[in-house]
Amino acid sequence: MPLTLRQFRFTAAIFDMDGLLVDSERVTQRAWIDAAQARGIALEEVDYLQVVGRASADSDAMLTKLLGGPGVFELVRADVAARLSDGGPAPLFPLKPGAASLLQALRQAGVPCAVASSSRRDEIEHRLARVGVLQHFHAWAGGNEVPRGKPDPALYLLAAARLGVDPIQCLAFEDSENGARAAQAAGVAVVIVPDLKRPGAEVVERSYGVLESLVLAHDHLPHWFPAP
């Protein structure tokens, strides 16, 4: 059951990307499961969920073990890359409901925004440009730019530093438990918008609130951020 969303004035917002801003997690999960199955390997959804929200190096290591070794992993990864080719007229990973209007509202309110994503920096730029929202962000931090990925706080600390804002003055939006833990460890308040997997009770209890969709965030903006 969603928590009552608390009220505190923040000065900046930090967003996760995959599964939060863009609907990418389900497509990516399906690609890995199907590519593994094509080689006779049963990669279950519950296994794949272990890697959601983690940096590429961490998720690659976990998938290598799940798939049976580095050789098989490289073959499956190449297949996944082909399945996830984003060269069509429409973006492979569309914006999630409420994302565009929320970012526009924050921009109009003068609230600086950043991205803290486990994806590589170039992937952040590509995916957000494809869906037309990259211009709303003042900064972004990718998983390839920090020594340890989520749930380590490094990504959120880097994003806040690039905004020039104290982490305690930032409100984060996350879909995964690993992401929520990363924000909390950095001292950043976090609103959880679950995607593939709902976070555990302990993470939810320490969150700023839980929403079923970014659409529902609009009504809370006057309470979360100062008026322009």
Rank of each mutant, 00 (worst) to 15 (best):
G40D: 05
G40M: 04
G40K: 06
A42M: 13
A42E: 06
L43P: 08
L43I: 14
E45T: 09
V46Y: 11
V46T: 11
V46L: 05
D47T: 15
D47E: 08
L49M: 07
Q50I: 10
Q50Y: 05
Q50F: 06
Q50A: 04
V51Y: 01
V51C: 07
V52I: 12
G53W: 02
G53L: 03
R54S: 04
A55L: 07
S56G: 14
D58M: 12
D58T: 11
S59K: 09
D60C: 07
A61V: 06
M62E: 03
L63N: 06
L63D: 04
L63A: 04
K65S: 15
K65F: 04
L66C: 05
L66V: 06
L67S: 13
L67H: 03
L67A: 14
G69P: 05
G69Y: 00
P70E: 08
P70T: 05
G71H: 09
G71L: 11
G71K: 11
V72C: 05
V72R: 12
V72N: 14
E74A: 15
E74K: 12
L75W: 11
L75P: 10
R77T: 07
R77Y: 01
R77I: 11
A78C: 03
D79K: 11
D79E: 12
A81I: 13
A81D: 09
A82M: 14
A82H: 07
A82I: 10
R83L: 15
R83I: 08
L84G: 06
S85Q: 06
G87Y: 00
G88K: 03
G88I: 08
P89H: 02
A90L: 07
A90S: 13
A90P: 10
F93N: 02
F93P: 00
P94N: 06
L95C: 10
P97H: 02
P97W: 00
P97D: 02
P97R: 08
G98P: 09
G98Y: 01
G98R: 12
G98D: 00
A99Q: 07
A100H: 11
A100S: 14
S101V: 12
L102H: 04
L102C: 09
L102Y: 04
L102I: 14
L103F: 00
L103I: 00
L103H: 00
A105Q: 03
A105P: 04
L106V: 02
R107A: 15
